[in-house]
């Protein structure tokens, strides 16, 4: 099973790929629409601002491919800005349309003493999910961001607190989002990526190909 990381020119994602490898997950980093269209598992990374990232996906014709992927019931993991793009809209330098795969809006963090929200913060578990196997409330993960997803409790798997309650892990059927950097989150991050890999393997594949 190879996880396809979407390469759409949003910051350096070499270390994300290294993190997947450390967790034992095979990855391909690509912008090739054919490979993306045929992927079982898509990873949407991203560092930077909301609007340029959406523009970059659009320019490469990837928005339709991501929607088609999800509507076929295949798994998608968004990380950091990639998680924020999963929502309906982003309020960063104006209001911009997101992928709309999870209900909610991405808003600036207010009332925080220091921004960005940078460093290790602890998770509060809100609901069970296969990616949370072995992860307890109080586990620390590494965050770097200034915007957060304002969303409904039903999609929140885990939250953290930074002046506001920040959804840290979200889900909507086969779509998962992580606001923090699992690849920089020590053993907890590695476990989350392993869990994601296992979830994909068990739920979505038979002998390495997509379960029909």
């Amino acid at each position: 099973m190879t996880h396809v990381i979407i390469d759409y020119d949003v910051g350096n994602i070499a270390s994300l790929q290294m993190g997947f490898e450390r967790a034992g997950l095979n990855t391909t980093l690509t912008a090739d629409p054919n490979i993306i269209a045929n992927a079982t598992s898509l990873i949407l990374p991203g560092v930077g601002a909301f609007q340029p990232a959406m523009a970059s996906l659009k320019e490469r014709g990837l928005i339709e491919l991501i929607h088609a992927h999800v509507s076929q019931g295949k798994p998608l993991l968004g990380i950091c800005l990639g998680m924020q793009l999963l929502f309906e809209e982003g309020h960063e330098f104006g209001v911009h349309k997101g992928l709309g795969l999870i209900p909610g809006s991405v808003l600036p963090i207010r009332d925080a003493e220091k921004l960005p929200h940078m460093g290790w913060n602890d998770l509060s578990l809100m609901q069970d999910h296969p990616v949370m196997a072995g992860i307890k409330t109080g586990s620390y993960v590494y965050f770097v961001h200034s915007f957060y997803a304002s969303t409904t409790p039903s999609v929140q798997v885990a939250t953290t607190d930074y002046g506001v309650t920040i959804p840290a892990i979200v889900q909507n059927n086969t779509v998962i989002g992580m606001q923090f950097h699992p690849e920089k989150s020590a053993k907890v991050g590695e476990q989350l990526l392993k869990n994601y890999g296992r979830w994909v393997d068990e739920r979505f594949t038979v002998d390495g190909s997509l379960q029909s």
Partner: peptide
């Protein structure tokens, strides 16, 4: 270092 460690 980047390949080896899982912290920033």
């Amino acid at each position: 270092v980047a390949q080896t460690i899982n912290i920033p």
